[in-house]
Nucleic acid binder design. Structure first.
Length: 274
DNA sequence: CCTGCTACCTGATGGC
DNA sequence: TGCCATCAGGTAGCAG
């Protein structure tokens, strides 16, 4: 599920919990979670490694180790849960896929749907997905002039540009819809035909939508000890996403949902003009 | 190279 | 109630 704000909130919260600490070993309960790697490789590479930092790249979470790093991608449903230890994890009736054991507990990567992945990498760029990431939407390099250039690279609908991780890293289906609504631009508008003023408005909308979402994701922060935890209150900040048939909060006309490259796009056909 | 489509998975939900 | 279809905040991999 998570886009950059959710992963960033997870990174910030997890950093305070595990930075500087040693992973004693890795338990893989569902091998699909480390595919195409193996439990053995992950355990060999990570056992007794110290976590120097926790980082985010786009929607990837990285545990930087003194030997390489662990990358995690949550895809739609992945999350992290803290257990008192392996025995606690087995005793509680909670699905978990990969466990990182510490002296006093175990961090579990949890994804019943099994689309999420945990990998060990010698360097982050050894992951083709990470290597291909464009400018991170939260980084200082994501300036208006950078965004404006990205818009002109080639003609494509704004929705496709915003969610293309190789151009702008971290924006997904929800926050692209939200930013386009705030900027009053149709998801179908050709990115290369925006006026400079429109591009500026859209850039501002992306930045502010993500900032507001991050603040929401940190208040309250993730509670890894509660296996049921998930971000609350995001519905309150959403203006169009998942509001098909409901009145636009700006002009009152019905929000529409259409398919764009196989994904749902929500927009107001009245105030988001093509 | 680039682009667009499908596969990958499981669970929740809604209509009949 | 049961069954079936549809939907889900994403990316990797492959064909063209």
């Amino acid at each position: 599920m998570p886009e950059a704000p959710e992963v960033e909130a997870i990174a910030i919260t997890l950093r305070a919990l595990v930075r500087g600490r040693r992973i004693s070993r890795v338990r893989v309960r569902h091998a699909i979670g480390v595919k195409p790697q193996t439990a053995g490789l992950l355990n060999r590479s990570v056992s007794s490694a110290r976590i120097s930092d926790v980082e985010r790249r786009g929607k990837y979470l990285l545990l930087a180790l003194d030997r390489g790093c662990v990358s995690m991608h949550f895809k739609f449903d992945g999350q992290l849960v803290w257990f008192d230890g392996p025995a606690d994890a087995l005793k509680r009736n909670v699905h978990w896929d990969v466990g990182f054991e510490f002296e006093d507990g175990m961090l579990g990567f949890v994804d019943p749907r099994h689309l999420g992945r945990v990998h060990w990498l010698a360097r982050p760029e050894d992951s083709s997905g990470i290597k291909a990431l464009g400018v991170d939407a939260f980084s200082p390099q994501f300036t208006f002039s950078e965004f404006n250039e990205i818009c002109r690279v080639r003609p494509r609908p704004l929705k496709m540009l915003l969610t293309d991780q190789t151009r702008i890293a971290g924006v997904g289906n929800i926050y692209s819809a939200e930013a386009l609504w705030h900027a009053r631009l149709s998801p179908f508008r050709r990115s290369d035909r925006l006026t400079a003023a429109e591009a500026r408005k859209l850039h501002k909308a992306v930045v502010s939508v993500l900032a507001r979402a991050l603040e929401c994701c940190l208040n309250p922060p993730p509670d890894f000890r509660n296996s049921q935890w998930w971000f609350t209150g995001l519905e309150k900040i959403l203006r169009v996403y998942d509001r098909e048939g409901l009145p636009c909060r700006r002009c009152g006309s019905k929000i529409r949902r259409v398919e764009q490259s196989g994904r749902s796009t929500y927009f107001c056909a009245h105030c988001q003009r093509p």
